[in-house]
Simulated scan of single mutants.
Amino acid sequence: MPTTSGRNRSRSRSRHTAGSVRSIVVIGVAMAVAACAGPAPAGTVSADGLVALVGTSDDVTLLGWGTNADDPISIELPKRDTTWIATGRADVLAATLTDGSVATSNPVSLGVRPVTWRPVRAAGPNGDAPEGPEYFATWDPEGGRYATLAGNLAGGDAIRVVLVDPTVASAFEIALDQPVVAAPPTWIDDDRLVVITGDTDRPSSTIVDATTGGLAEGPAGARLLAASADGHRIATMAGRGAPVVVRDTSGWLAGDGSSLASIEPPDVGSSAIAIALDDGGERLAIAWAAADGSVSLAVHGGASDWRRVATPQIGSAQGAVVAWRRGG
């Protein structure tokens, strides 16, 4: 899970499962900065559909918001040492654990039925399971399969994209053959995803064709990406101190410099540690860390000129991952 400690441990990974949330940070995704341009009128957009994996000094919890943004509902986790969460079709979740394994849930219905989890044990065409550990399980636009980064992510070398269909427990691996930055892969359409490559100081990107396994050079300069579920919009962040920029994905790929919004940091020393766009790219959730190490959430709405429209409460958090439920 991205935490405030990522600033000093940007290329480390712990396997401990107890104590501080800092002990379960995967890699410091907390390299970039974002926040709000001022609040919009109350009630314009809610946090309905938001999911947040929240870490405190001694616990990790998963919270979901319905129509009452002031009253999140706790969602059971597969294990306490969950480091990443992603949402797929019919509100099925994928959780990545500290040991590099992945578990998927039954459809989430907040407060209606219990959430159950099962570990994913996928195998490739030769019958062997992909060599892990795996990081950042991220569902494709249809929400039926997910991609992970697998290998020695701390070293940034010999990393593979692993495509997994958990329904049939199948896996397909694509070697990247280049240094990879610790950041979640981002789907931009049904067949392509973007991986941040290069290094943290000069990030570039590689577009991976999930059908053919082909690799192509993508836009440079983004340290962290998040796309809407349909892939039509993308949020980019260049690094610590940089704004979060919302763009049409086609314009970003073309390098035309266009943008829909640029959300500046709220104050000196604040750093974004996770971002997420909803299904249609109309709401942007940001988890940002203050200079004192505390973490809070903000939701920005496109219908309100991308001002802050909700501030979901997560208590004394020190780390967070955000996502939007997808239904369907």
Rank of each mutant, 00 (worst) to 15 (best):
V246W: 10
S170L: 05
V112W: 07
T87K: 09
I73E: 08
S46C: 03
N8I: 15
R233P: 01
A90K: 15
R13Q: 06
P125E: 11
D267S: 07
G55A: 00
A216T: 12
L176Y: 12
G241Q: 06
T3H: 02
G144L: 11
R15Q: 12
R307L: 14
A42H: 14
M237G: 08
G293V: 09
R192H: 15
Y135N: 10
G319V: 05
M237H: 08
V322P: 02
S101K: 14
Q178L: 00
G127V: 14
S228G: 03
A158R: 09
T167R: 15
D278C: 02
S250Y: 02
P125C: 06
A298M: 08
E76H: 04
G301Q: 10
A320G: 00
T167G: 03
H16S: 12
R192V: 07
L63K: 04
Y135L: 04
A310H: 12
V322H: 01
T186V: 14
A323E: 12
A123I: 09
S204M: 07
R202K: 15
P184Y: 12
G280I: 10
V108A: 02
T98G: 01
T83A: 06
R89H: 15
A147G: 08
I174D: 06
R192Y: 10
W306V: 01
S170H: 05
T67F: 05
P2R: 09
L253S: 00
P203H: 11
G198H: 15
A30S: 13
I24Y: 05
R308V: 11
A290C: 05
V295W: 05
G257V: 09
D140C: 03
T116Q: 06
S259G: 12
A317D: 04
G66A: 06
S205P: 08
V120E: 05
G301R: 14
V26C: 03
L176A: 07
Q318M: 04
P130I: 04
P203N: 10
L50E: 08
G151Q: 10
L110H: 00
R80T: 00
T96N: 06
D209R: 13
L93M: 00
V299I: 13
H16Q: 14
R80V: 05
G151T: 12
S294A: 06
T200M: 15
R11I: 11
G151F: 04
A291N: 05
G151S: 11
V25Y: 09
A229S: 13
D81A: 11
V29H: 03
V21W: 09
A123S: 08
V322M: 07
W84T: 04
C36P: 01
T212I: 02
T206E: 06
S304K: 09
L193Q: 01
G144C: 04
L163G: 11
H232C: 01
I188S: 01
V92W: 11
T4C: 04
V244R: 08
A210Q: 07
D292R: 15
G64N: 01
A276E: 03
P130D: 03
P125S: 12
T44F: 14
A287E: 03
L110W: 00
A261I: 14
V25I: 10
P39G: 13
A222M: 14
S270L: 05
L260Y: 08
G251M: 08
G144I: 15
L153P: 00
S101D: 03
S46I: 08
